[in-house]
Design a protein around this nucleic acid. Structure first.
Lengths: 210, 210
DNA sequence: GTCTATACAGAGATAGAC
DNA sequence: GTCTATCTCTGTATAGAC
């Protein structure tokens, strides 16, 4: 963007960039990094292929930008927790916010899943660094709750994975869920029920609620 | 295979076919259907590309054969259940056998996941037919158990999805699990602990065990 | 800023030498 | 049965017309 750019040109740019990001998220989610073609992304975005490359530089840069956006969304949903908090409240909020993310950004969730499924070539650093620390911090608090008898002494890391997998499932395996339950889409009401179900079973399962 | 084929030629064929299936499962699991190239599969299998195509016909046929193999494995682990069975025993066996499948065939699990993630283009029929019936039958039994007060009145379909997702996770998100827990691989002991954890939390969570 | 044309590497698949 | 050579199509990316 130069100093000569008109507001109109800027608006066009923003609109196109948004269309590209949305289209790319869908196509990468569906076919993975290698399986996605710039051509397919351009078609979904309603732009010529070279226009897409003009905006984003390269397929790789586009992909990385999308992964980073997803990590940002994920970070935005997190609160810090402490031993003084109520386990039931924290776990329930944790399940609900994760489920909310799944519901609001299914394509992003699937994109993330495809990246992990393929061995996480672009996310190694994140998994070994930032995310590991996040898990360790929570795990420590869960352990202290268990020591105080506020919940069962279960391995906190497996518990976090349980919550992640159970919620993530409704984005990543959506086709399976829809096929088996004979639905076209999952409604808000469905999401509410599933979330309630998960809160109930998981909280009871680790002894923070009767 | 003609009537003139020697035992030796047959043995070669079997060995090559096995190598191809194994290689293809890995590559398809990692990159999805579109992202996988016959070239890459051939390299992993240690054969020339055209040799691979000579054996399997086409990329598509190869892919479908692998999906079917996975469905067969899945069917092989299933027992029929009835209302007269013990809920705790059945649910635990269910979790354990699913986890066993994940552990023994991680590549197949990931291949399956990639297919579902991409909208299950080759599995629509299976999801809407065979698998749906399988789920409906189990769900009915779970409901009857709940009516008899043998377990909490939770939605049986969400419960099945919970078990699937929680177990499947350790194949599909293996890189994430390894990254966060700072491991190179998951040992037998890890799998044992995770399975015990899941049995404990899920069974308690739906009220079949205290 | 935008699109057409094109370069060049790699895809899936096949024909034909061995 | 096996592999080399090749066909055709599509991939990413860029140069240059508008």
């Amino acid at each position: 963007m130069t100093s000569m750019s008109t507001p109109d040109a800027t608006r066009t740019r923003l609109r196109n960039e948004k269309a590209i990001l949305e289209a790319a998220e869908r196509v990468f989610a569906q076919h993975g990094y290698r399986g996605a073609s710039v051509q397919a992304i351009a078609e979904v975005a309603g732009l010529p292929k070279s226009n897409v490359l003009y905006y984003v530089g390269s397929k790789k840069q586009l992909y990385i930008a999308l992964l980073e956006r997803m990590v940002t969304r994920w970070n935005a949903t997190l609160d810090d927790i402490s031993v003084e908090d109520d386990p039931a409240q924290v776990l329930e909020a944790f399940i609900r916010s994760k489920m909310q993310l799944t519901k609001e950004h299914p394509q992003g969730s699937r994109l993330f899943a495809a990246e992990i499924l393929g061995g996480a070539p672009f996310l190694q650093e994140y998994l070994h660094g930032e995310l590991r620390e996040w898990v360790r911090a929570r795990a420590r608090v869960f352990e202290q709750w268990a020591e105080r008898g506020l919940m069962d002494p279960v391995d906190p890391v497996w518990l976090i994975f349980l919550i992640w997998s159970a919620t993530q499932h409704y984005a990543d395996f959506e086709s399976q869920v829809l096929g088996i339950t004979n639905r076209e889409t999952l409604s808000d009401e469905d999401y509410r029920r599933i979330t309630d179900f998960l809160c109930r079973v998981i909280l009871k399962g680790c002894g923070v609620r009767p």
